[in-house]
Write a protein that binds this DNA or RNA. Structure first.
Length: 1117
RNA sequence: GGGCCUGUAGCUCAGCCCGGUUAGAGCGCACGCCUGAUAAGCGUGAGGUCGGUAGUUCGAGUCUACCCAGGCCCA
């Protein structure tokens, strides 16, 4: 899966043809990669335990593919610091150090993932270096050896002569050097018919240009471009001693001809004719050194990489000395063989930079010496060309050239033996090739987003044979033996004892690790008894490409554990892994099992800054995940990942994070509100939906609606939609609507009023459902909320399935009706706002709106509803009435206006925005009369001696409860609880209040108010969720006793008092306030608070409770 | 240069497949309200030439072509 960000194999990036390429990703560039998958992977893992997915859960199988190469660098560096050379160290000692180094990082990275709240089997992570894994990887490779697709070929690699080692692209940096350049003639010896008579071309020469004269002995072809116009030129005037003589006929790109003319000191020449691509197509030339051991045909090949920017428009092609040359050569292999041309790539340069005997006439000459300086090869070759009369011109060029990142010395491209897996050979025992199988599997795989399919297919279609060997030390070796004379490999399709050999190797690796391959006497140990003479066989010491390692994860992860199934449901990685893990896994599995190891592939983009640019240290726009966690907490990071469109590139930065912090608070507070009120809930208060008021049934309908959508979007991996949906629900439907409407009922209605009971039932359902839906995203917060309500050492919100929502809750008619109600509500709030501007009202309760509705159907929407309740306003006095539908319920404070008195046709123009309806606001006679705007300090009825005063006397005694008139007296309140059987949950705060009230009375303590302040005495589990303790509950009529001072006793900083904060909102008071209360400014943003909050959660995580619970009990598979 | 992808309000995202009212949410911002979610809560408002240009069409955010900007993988 994800590799350590700091150790991720750097990938090749081009930054322009001539620019210096970054040799490594900068440290900063690497860091953000740990954003890449974690939250998505985890939410995906958590979102799965859904009914409909076989009822099974799914957990992340923690795994770490090891970046072999960077580890090897690091270890090498360590040795060099101690003055030791890698070559001097026994290979197995070196490998041991690598292993220890890797183990350290596995631990660190595992901890980082856990900090993010990722669920996973952290006690048993898989790594590609576990013995079991190494044995499996070797066994998988040997399957390819047995099915006939593994073969030994050759390929040019970047080679450092100084270090005598192959280098990866990432180990190379570009430096400016001065090179010898030469123009060389290749006389045409055969031409196909095009626009020219072939005879006219015979005797003419193709001119090439190169900066590496030493590659001429390796030349096997000339590349041209079908898009360039070429001309045939005849030299008519030149100095006598010139290399290009009068009468020479040269073929060159027209746009570059002047270039050549100048370089070759040609005074005059004449363009004879154009040379069309058709003419060149099947032509061939002689090697410039023909007659000196280079007597072969040099074909002309069309190549897309040929440009008319520099040189002559023809590219000298030495397949052993350049990637493009090699690819072109391989690409045209079939055609060349048909033309009778030997396609073998010569090994002209050895590991020391010396010409081999395959470079005839130059054997022993050297390209680069031990110090990385230029050898005698170039000069010798140039002299030979001059001698052969093939040289047209020579010069010098300053340009960028690859150098070893460590030694800073130039490198060369050099053909080396490598191991390949054939893409197009039929696999033994089957008719199709690896490519056929892979392409078929791609069609059968689900890609999210769908464009991933095109991308992967494009890459597989054009992939050359898979190179699986690397000349390194640390990794799993290519476990085959080779008979150099017969070219046979063991194990292999023709080798008689393959089965036994594979068993021996696998068994040895399983117990000793891959080091067994490099132990002394390994060859004899594995081959004895299976071959006549082990000495005739050669042990291959190449290391397997890391991509092969990672491509085998499915084999050693999924197949070797009973609780996991093959194939995997999903592979998830960054979109760059189309070339990496997705592809190597696909190929490996297709080769050995005939299909992809996954049913679906999910990709995500990369993390950018707020402007969508790459993060880089120099641009100063980096945001490291670790810093986000440190500052805002892991939840914020998770939320960010979820709310972003991860299919594309992700953006992150201070502003975006701030938005997520706010969103987080909103969600948290919605949950907290529910939690606080549910402290009073008991199962026997439960009401059946059929017995609920319409508003409650409407909320259940909304929940059922969401249920369908949330499940669908989790299934579609569209987390951002889930988030938006749930967030909007919490903000619009709950916070701004339902909670706001039902506060009165929850706080003020009698304990067992039907409305209150129904509201609590709905809250319970909302809580149960929302915690489950949000748990994959806000795993810490939801866990805490859940355990707060249902404390348990073993339980966890993450062990739950999404609750089943009965379909019967869906009620489209109700939905239509309440849409209209909310439409009317918006008109009223708009009208209220006008009155507010005029300073005629403050709270909505100061108003008694008259709503004029022209349309019958809109009017009908309000039938049976209490408008005052819906608009949170006061109702006309005349409408005070008892509920006719529920006469048994005591609701004397409640207004039930008759429809006729309240709704009228809008004949007269009324203030408002919509012609369909409008609202006229008048000041409520009731609120104005019963509770003046600044009420005098009142004494509550029925309070013992002293009574309860309005503590701060700022008129804050106003509240919605005043709508009910005098409200309950404490006596009434108490009477209710004296009845006994209806006592609430003994744990709830309400019970605590009741108990204390009773005790106070018995003891004659008088003032019951102090009991409303027990905040400081909360149990620890209530500390984070003060409302959960239910202590906000106050009996009606008891005046507000705000435990404000108690806030100050808390461990955190202190907010400005209410009065002070109100001042803050009036601009002319702000400045003075700021001067006075400067220390309080800490509170301004609220951000600090949030952090404190999250830190508290962290403590719990670190104490192991959350993770402990998850770890032992992740959902079984 | 090639393959794949993206561009809608200050931010995060809908709408595009299948062209059709005045392009929608939420956040943020501005202005207010409330003080019994208060480390909260509620309301109202401003804010968009839908990356650009051309084309198809009665009509284009939506379809087509090109261009610009950005990303990943390759050359």
């Amino acid at each position: 899966m994800e590799r350590d960000p700091a150790l991720r194999p750097p990938s090749r990036r081009s930054e322009g043809a001539r620019q210096v390429r970054a040799s490594r990703r900068s440290a900063l560039r690497q860091r953000p990669s740990s954003y890449r998958t974690c939250p998505q992977q985890d939410v995906e893992g958590r979102g799965r335990p859904l009914p409909g997915h076989d009822g099974q859960g799914c957990a992340l199988r923690a795994g770490l593919g090891l970046p072999r190469l960077p580890i090897e660098w690091k270890v090498e560096e360590g040795f060099r610091d101690k003055g030791k050379n890698k070559d001097e160290i026994p290979i197995n000692s070196f490998r041991r150090v690598c292993r220890e180094f890797a183990e350290k990082w596995v631990k660190i990275q595992s901890e980082e993932f856990q900090r993010l709240g990722m669920l996973g089997d952290w006690d048993n992570p898989y790594t590609t270096m576990a013995f079991e894994a190494e044995a499996t990887i070797a066994a998988e490779l040997m399957k390819f050896a047995l099915n006939g697709t593994l073969y030994r070929g050759s390929k040019p690699v970047m080679w450092s002569v100084v270090e005598k080692t192959a280098l990866a692209e990432a180990e190379v940096e570009y430096q400016e050097v001065v090179s010898d350049t030469i123009f060389v003639k290749f006389p045409l010896t055969g031409a196909s018919s095009g626009n020219l008579d072939p005879h006219e071309l015979l005797g003419a020469s193709i001119v090439i240009w190169t900066t590496t004269p030493w590659t001429i002995p390796g030349n096997r072809a000339i590349a041209y471009s079908p898009n360039i116009e070429y001309g045939l030129y005849e030299v008519t005037a030149a100095p006598d001693d010139n290399w290009a003589k009068v009468g020479d006929r040269l073929i060159v790109a027209d746009s570059l001809s002047e270039n050549l003319k100048t370089a070759a000191r040609i005074e005059e020449w004449q363009r004879l004719n154009s040379v069309s691509p058709d003419t060149l197509k099947y032509s061939h030339a002689a090697h410039p050194l023909s007659g000196r051991g280079y007597d072969f045909r040099v074909p002309l090949l069309p190549g897309d990489h040929v440009t008319a920017e520099t040189g002559t428009g023809f590219v000298h092609t030495a397949p052993g000395h350049g990637m493009e040359d090699f690819e072109l050569w391989e690409d045209k292999k079939r055609l060349l063989e048909e033309r009778g041309i030997d396609t073998a790539i010569p090994f002209t340069v050895d590991a020391g930079g010396f010409f081999t005997d395959q470079a005839k006439g130059f054997t022993g000459k050297r390209v680069l010496n031990d110090k990385g300086e230029k050898g005698d090869a170039n000069e010798t070759v140039i002299a030979a060309l001059k001698d052969a009369d093939a040289l047209v011109a020579r010069g010098k060029l300053r340009h960028d050239y690859p150098h070893s990142w460590r030694s800073k010395k130039p490198v060369i491209f050099r053909n080396t033996p490598q191991w390949f897996i054939a893409m197009d050979e039929p696999i033994e025992g089957s008719v199709d090739s690896l490519r056929d199988r892979a392409l078929r599997s791609i069609r059968e795989t689900r890609f999210v987003p769908a464009s991933g399919e095109n991308r992967l297919r494009g890459m597989v279609e054009s992939k050359p044979d898979w190179v699986v060997s690397r000349q390194r030390a640390w990794g799993v070796p290519i476990t085959v033996f080779r008979h150099p004379e017969r070219g046979e490999i063991a194990p292999g399709p023709k080798f008689g004892h393959s089965e036994e050999l594979v068993a021996r190797i696998t068994e040895a690796f399983r117990t000793e690790g891959a080091d067994a391959w490099f132990a002394d006497g390994a060859k004899e140990r594995f081959l004895s008894g299976l071959v006549d003479d082990p000495a005739q066989w050669e042990k291959v010491d190449d290391i397997l490409d890391v991509w092969f390692d990672s491509g085998c994860t499915h084999a050693f992860v999924l197949e070797q554990r009973e609780d996991l199934q093959w194939p995997a449901s999903l592979y998830l990685e960054g979109s760059d892994q189309h070339r990496g893990w997705f592809q190597s896994s696909l190929l490996e599995s297709c080769g050995t099992r005939g299909r992809a190891p996954y049913d679906a592939v999910l990709t995500h983009g990369f993390t950018m800054d707020e402007q969508g640019r790459k993060m880089s240290k120099s641009a100063g726009n980096t945001t490291a995940p670790q810093d986000v966690i440190k500052q805002s907490g892991a939840e914020i990071l998770r939320l960010w990942a979820m709310s972003s469109d991860y299919w594309e590139d992700l953006r992150i930065g201070p502003e975006i994070l701030k938005a997520n912090v706010d969103a987080y608070r909103k969600l948290r507070n919605a949950v907290r509100f529910m939690l606080g009120n549910l402290a009073h809930y008991r199962q026997d208060l439960r009401v059946f939906p059929g017995d609920m008021p319409e508003l409650e049934r409407y909320m259940l309908h909304r929940l059922a609606e969401l249920d369908v959508q949330v499940r669908a979007n989790y299934n579609a991996f569209d987390f951002k939609r889930v988030f938006q949906m749930l967030f909007n629900f919490c903000v619009n439907d709950l916070s701004a609507f339902y909670f706001d409407l039902r506060k009165d009922a929850l706080y003020c209605e009698p304990y067992d009023s039907p409305t209150r009971r129904a509201a609590l039932t709905v809250l319970d359902q909302l809580f149960t459902t929302l915690t489950a839906w949000l748990a994959p995203m806000l795993c810490f917060t939801m866990e805490e909320a859940w355990l707060n309500r249902f404390p348990s050492d073993k339980g966890s919100v993450h062990l739950r399935h999404f609750p089943d929502i009965p379909e019967e809750w869906l009620d489209e008619e109700l939905d239509r009706k309440w849409r209209k109600v909310r439409q009317i509500r918006r008109v009223v709030t708009g009208a209220l706002e006008i009155e507010r501007r005029e300073r005629r009202i403050g709270a909505s309760l100061d108003a008694a709106p008259k709503v004029y509705i022209a349309y019958q159907e809109l009017r009908a929407a309000l039938s049976g509803l209490d408008p005052a309740e819906i608009f949170i306003t006061s109702a006309p006095a005349s409408s005070w009435a008892r509920d006719r539908r529920m006469p048994s319920v005591w609701t004397r404070w409640r207004a039930w206006p008759s429809r006729s008195s309240w709704l009228r046709d809008a004949n007269a123009p009324a203030p408002g925005r919509s012609p369909k309806m409008s609202a006229a606001i008048r000041i409520s006679p009731i609120s104005a009369h019963v509770t003046p705007r600044r009420p005098p300090v009142r004494k509550a009825q029925g309070c013992g001696s002293g009574g309860i005063g309005d503590e701060d006397g700022d008129g804050a005694g106003r509240g919605r409860a005043r709508r009910s008139g005098a409200g309950h007296s404490v006596g009434e309140f108490q009477a209710r609880y004296d009845r006994g059987p209806r006592l609430p949950d003994p744990r709830s705060g309400k019970q605590a209040v009741a108990d204390l009230l009773i005790r106070h009375r018995r003891e004659g303590a008088g003032d019951p108010c102090p009991v409303l302040r027990p905040r400081h005495g909360l149990e620890p589990r209530h500390q984070l969720w003060p409302a959960a303790a239910g202590l906000r509950f106050r009996p009606l009529g008891a005046h507000r006793v705000r435990p404000r001072r108690l806030h100050r006793a808390g461990p955190m900083a202190v907010p400005p008092g209410d009065a002070a904060r109100r001042h803050l909102r009036r601009p002319h008071h702000r400045r003075r306030h700021r001067q006075r209360h400067r220390p309080h400014r800490l509170w301004g943003g609220g951000r600090f608070l949030l952090h404190a909050d999250l830190r508290l959660r962290l403590v719990r995580v670190q104490s192991g409770r959350l993770l402990g619970g998850c770890r032992g009990r992740r959902p079984s598979l």
